[in-house]
Amino acid sequence: MTYTLERVARQASEAKELAVHTSRALRDLKRGTKSGLSGRDRFVRHAVLRALAANRPGITYEDVYREVYRERAATSPATTTVPEWASELAAVDVGEFLATGVQPLALSRLAALGRTVSLDGIGTLRIPFRPPGDDVGGWIGEGAPIPADSLDFGTVSVSPRKAAAVSIFTAELKKRAAADIEMLLDSALRTDIASIVDAALVDDQPGSAVRPAGLRFNVAAVTASAATDPLVAMRADLAKLAGEIMAGAGGGTMPVYLVNPVQMTSFGFLPNIAYAVVDTPAVPAGTVIAVDGPAFISGNGSAAVDASKDATIHEDTAPAPIVAGGTAASPTRNLWQTDTLAVRVILEVAWGLPAGRSAWMEGVKW
């Protein structure tokens, strides 16, 4: 009996040690410390594990990790902390995913030139800024009072809004190598999210309970140059837009131009341009937007990645409930019936800009 109890105790201890080692390895995976993973890689790998573990009874994320990446649990000192890595996505990981890769989001590139805030647990965040005012200070005589202006501040309010995308893949995705799966998910998720976020960023629609206001909302377009020489017109257009946000609004400091890739090619003919340029297909061809970069405020909040092989989806740009009032939505896709996999990403994002710090024009000749 004593021998049996000792053997059971030893086996239990070995099992506990193995579990602890596995947890430590997975913690390192989340943090990127073991394999040197970047935030972008961690985000994509998280999506891969979610997708490959979808609807596999008895299969855990740990099992999929070892199966796909062919890694064994590392031997390391015991720890009492078991991180819920499969249900967490750090904001820095989300931000890095959106800001890196072959096609970084325009929002991320613009945010890098302004101010970024955390939206975790925030309903509405008000960011103070000093609006344009009278000149202050000046040359004074001995003992004379120094001119001063009132310290009146304005605020820019940012509230987290949910951007969500569902990417659908065939079951053959699971037959590919791990590197191929990561590449496919990276490209698909980035493209789907960009089509939502960047399109809203550069449009002229007002903010609402479901989205932030576009940079062109409530901003009248300025007239593009009528010069027939494209280079002359380009110089005039860029100078005019810069003037709108720097002189006209007062207080602008560094214009950032957002353009379509068609217009982006023309910047190669302007040597040593002093200001940043962000290209994105979300900006209509022939349209140029200028933003005061340092005044731009953006925020990242929570993120969630899920996968399913059983859901039924209404495939429409304006999806409706599958059945509402006895009427079925159409067209629908049943993932189980079509042997397909859906990966859903939901991000909390927001942005804001003081009034007068953006300008735009359309119909440019370059």
Rank of each mutant, 00 (worst) to 15 (best):
T2D: 14
Y3N: 10
R10M: 10
R10I: 05
R10T: 11
Q11K: 08
A12R: 09
E14M: 10
A15L: 12
K16H: 13
V20F: 04
T22G: 13
T22A: 13
T22Y: 00
S23A: 15
A25M: 12
D28G: 14
D28P: 00
L29P: 00
L29T: 03
G36T: 01
G39I: 08
D41C: 02
V44W: 00
A47I: 05
L49P: 05
L49T: 12
A53I: 03
A54Y: 11
G58K: 06
I59G: 00
D63V: 06
D63H: 15
D63Q: 12
V64Y: 00
V68S: 03
Y69P: 07
R72P: 04
A73S: 15
A74W: 14
P83Y: 04
A90P: 00
V92A: 15
V94C: 05
G95P: 00
L110A: 13
A112T: 06
L119S: 03
G123S: 05
T124Y: 01
L125A: 05
L125M: 07
P128W: 07
F129N: 04
P132E: 10
P132R: 12
D134Q: 14
V136T: 15
G137W: 06
I140S: 14
E142G: 04
G143F: 13
G154W: 10
G154Q: 08
T155W: 12
S157P: 12
S159I: 01
K162A: 13
A163I: 06
A163P: 09
V166C: 11
T170Q: 06
A171M: 09
K175G: 13
R176N: 06
L185D: 05
L185A: 09
S195T: 11
I196E: 13
V202M: 02
V202E: 06
D203P: 08
A209N: 12
A209C: 01
A213C: 06
R216H: 07
A220P: 05
V222K: 02
V222M: 06
V222A: 10
D229I: 01
D229K: 01
L231F: 04
A233K: 02
A233C: 03
M234K: 06
D237W: 01
L238G: 04
A239M: 07
K240W: 00
E244S: 11
M246F: 01
G250Q: 04
Y257H: 07
G268H: 06
F269N: 08
N272A: 15
V283A: 06
P284Q: 04
V288C: 07
A290R: 02
V291L: 10
A295Y: 09
N300E: 14
G301N: 08
A304M: 11
V305W: 01
I313K: 03
I313C: 08
H314P: 09
E315I: 15
T317W: 04
A318F: 13
A318S: 13
A318C: 01
P319Q: 10
A324I: 05
G325M: 05
S330C: 00
T332C: 11
R333L: 14
L335P: 09
T340F: 00
V343S: 12
R344T: 15
E348W: 01
V349N: 07
L353Q: 12
W360Y: 11
